[in-house]
Design a protein around this nucleic acid. Structure first.
Length: 183
DNA sequence: TAAGTGATCTCT
DNA sequence: GAGATCACTTAA
C-alpha cells in the first residue's frame, strides 16, 4: 500500500467533480521530495463544478490566468495562494474546456486544506503539473473503498459569498470519524 | 471573534 | 495605480 500501487489516471479524474470528490475519500496521496516518499489517506474533499457554480473561481466561465488551469486536462494539479498565507491543493476534473476541480481539504494527520499543504510542503511550484507517478505528487488506490455509510456529505466550507443556493450545495465529502484510523 | 497576510482581479 | 476580496488558521 504505497508507491507500488498504480497511479490514478486522468480517466479517473475525467468525471463529474462531485463523483471524483467522493471517490477520492480513502485514496492515497503520495508526496515525493527528494528521496523521501510519504503516503497519506484522503479524509475530506470538496467539489467545484462548472461555470454555474457561484462558489467556483471559474464561476460564469471566468477565464483568467489563475483559473485557466481549471479548464484544462483532468488530473492536473491546481494550487493557489489565499489569505496571504495559505496554499490550497486541488485536482482538475472533467472535460477540457469545462471548469471543475476537487479541493483536497484533509488527509489523515493533517485535517484542513492549509494544514495539509503546509505539512507536505505543497506550493505553487506544483501548479499546472499533471499528477502522475514520478512527479512530486500523485494519487493511488488504497485497498477497498470506504462503505457508503462511512461517508458524510455536507455543504462546503467558507463559500458564503456564493449566495444561499450555491453555498448550500452538498459538495463536501468526508470520512466519518473512526474510518481508516481517523480519530 | 478578529487579525494576519499578499496575490489576484476589477475598477479607474 | 487603488481598493476589495479571499475555497483559512490561530490565538484569545
Amino acid at each position: 500500500m504505497s508507491g507500488a500501487s498504480p497511479a490514478l489516471t486522468p480517466e479517473f479524474f475525467n468525471r463529474p467533480a462531485d463523483k471524483v470528490a467522493r471517490d477520492l475519500l480513502g485514496k492515497a496521496l503520495l508526496r515525493r521530495r527528494g528521496r523521501s516518499l510519504t503516503t497519506h489517506i484522503i479524509t475530506e474533499t470538496e467539489a467545484y463544478i462548472g461555470p454555474e457554480d457561484l462558489a467556483s473561481h471559474a464561476a460564469g466561465g471566468r477565464r483568467t490566468k489563475r483559473t485557466e488551469i481549471m479548464f484544462g486536462q483532468a488530473g492536473t494539479l491546481y494550487v493557489y495562494f489565499v489569505y496571504g498565507m495559505h496554499w490550497m491543493l486541488n485536482v482538475v476534473t472533467g472535460e477540457i474546456g469545462y471548469p471543475a476541480a476537487v479541493l483536497i481539504r484533509g488527509i489523515e494527520g493533517a485535517e484542513g486544506p492549509a494544514r495539509l499543504t503546509r505539512a507536505l510542503n505543497i506550493t505553487g511550484a506544483l501548479n499546472g503539473t499533471l499528477a502522475r507517478k514520478g512527479s512530486g505528487l500523485w494519487f493511488t488506490d488504497c485497498g477497498s473503498p470506504p462503505a457508503r455509510n462511512a461517508i458524510l456529505r455536507t455543504a462546503r466550507i467558507g463559500v458564503d459569498y456564493a449566495g444561499p443556493v450555491w453555498s448550500a450545495k452538498p459538495y463536501r465529502f468526508l470520512l466519518k470519524p473512526g474510518v481508516y484510523g481517523r480519530r
